[in-house]
Design a protein around this nucleic acid. Structure first.
Lengths: 206, 206
DNA sequence: CTTTGTGAAATCCTTCACAGCG
DNA sequence: CGCTGTGAAGGATTTCACAAAG
């Protein structure tokens, strides 16, 4: 259900505008797919729509948030405070959606002790301790690829069950741990492929 | 073919280690899926493997790079030089994989004229001109959601055919333009869901 | 004996189309 | 009437399993 967060976004912007009900058609165009898919997806959560009317924005927002486990703000650690880690630490989108950054960790002794986005950077050695003490369940790995596996091992050993991996490498984790990988240069390469196509066959649709 | 870049990564790390041939099994475990899928994927590119041996790392790397249109370095513009834009501008992964950052653009007059990662930030008004002059085909949008559509309109009007969108919004673009969306808080929300599950049913596998 | 390449089977995902509710 | 909820159809993708090649 990788689409629920997108519905949530559409619902949030509907709330801002003051809309109180949305149809599957409106959700679909806001989210970028078709209405049948929206209804199928939402029907898996139970029956929250009213025929002839649509869905209550507030009710559906609450339901999706609950399914996603949002609301009770979730402590997150960012490991690796390079350019990307720093940007993520300062990114207010996390805070606005129910996540709370509670620790920053880096291997570089020159960075440890300095402050970024209101957090003092901690050494890798304290990772286990921090995860346990602060009840961290989600870790963001923004280290170089070579260190990513060691970090994953450390955080999962300490109790983290969900990892967002920005390092361009495949992580091995035990059962019960979920990894999502975001690979920025892969994304560009895929685009490159389409641009390549577009340049060769200007008639083709991406 | 969103998996080709991942194969490419595995191949690159194989090259670093000095391996000259890989089997579909090795590629599969490096990439995180199974060998049948790898072989199906690679068979679409043509027949580059040797039965009983595997694939030549160098040959396959060249072939995938060519299909993805890499090699002839591709000019990229980043629009929006906030935390994320700045991190992307400094991210060396792009340069190392055949992309060349040729312009930075921001709407904030206070930023225009300042230097980031060796590039002088240009005003939004020059966007069209920059895209045409510098032959830019790929744009990275790292602006707030409210401005993303206007930027997309501007760059596609100027000839960009591929967009990497970090703004949490659905972009409308004409035919022939490809958009890929990377939504960091969606990723965290999806993880949140799995962590939520793991916390409730410790036995279940992610 | 190992590993590719590939038809066939199985599975998953999307879209259609419409009955039924409000 | 409008819109949801959902079986059924249609596509696409993944996996199986094995023949053929080195």
């Amino acid at each position: 259900m990788a689409r629920l967060p997108i519905y949530l976004q559409v619902l949030l912007s509907a709330t801002e505008v003051g809309t109180t009900t949305v149809s599957s058609d409106e959700l679909a165009s806001g989210a970028g797919f078709n209405s049948a898919k929206v209804r199928k997806d939402l029907s898996h959560l139970g029956s929250y729509g009213t025929r002839g009317v649509g869905y209550q924005v507030a009710e559906l927002t609450a339901e999706i948030s609950q399914v996603l486990g949002l609301g009770d703000d979730r402590p997150v650690v960012i490991v690796g405070v390079g350019n990307l880690g720093r940007a993520l630490a300062s990114y207010d989108g996390f805070a606005r959606r129910g996540f709370r950054l509670v620790a920053l960790v880096d291997a570089d002794p020159a960075l440890v002790g300095t402050e970024v986005a209101g957090h003092t950077i901690e050494p890798v050695a304290r990772l286990h301790e921090l995860v346990e003490e602060r009840g961290i369940g989600i870790a963001v790995i923004a280290t170089p690829a070579a260190h990513a596996q060691a970090v994953a091992d450390a955080v999962t050993a300490a109790g983290v069950t969900a990892i967002l991996n920005f390092a361009p490498t495949q992580l091995e984790v035990g059962a019960g741990v979920t990894v999502r990988r975001v690979d920025l240069s892969s994304e560009l390469q895929i685009l490159s492929f389409y641009e390549h196509l577009a340049a060769q066959f200007p008639a083709a649709t991406g």
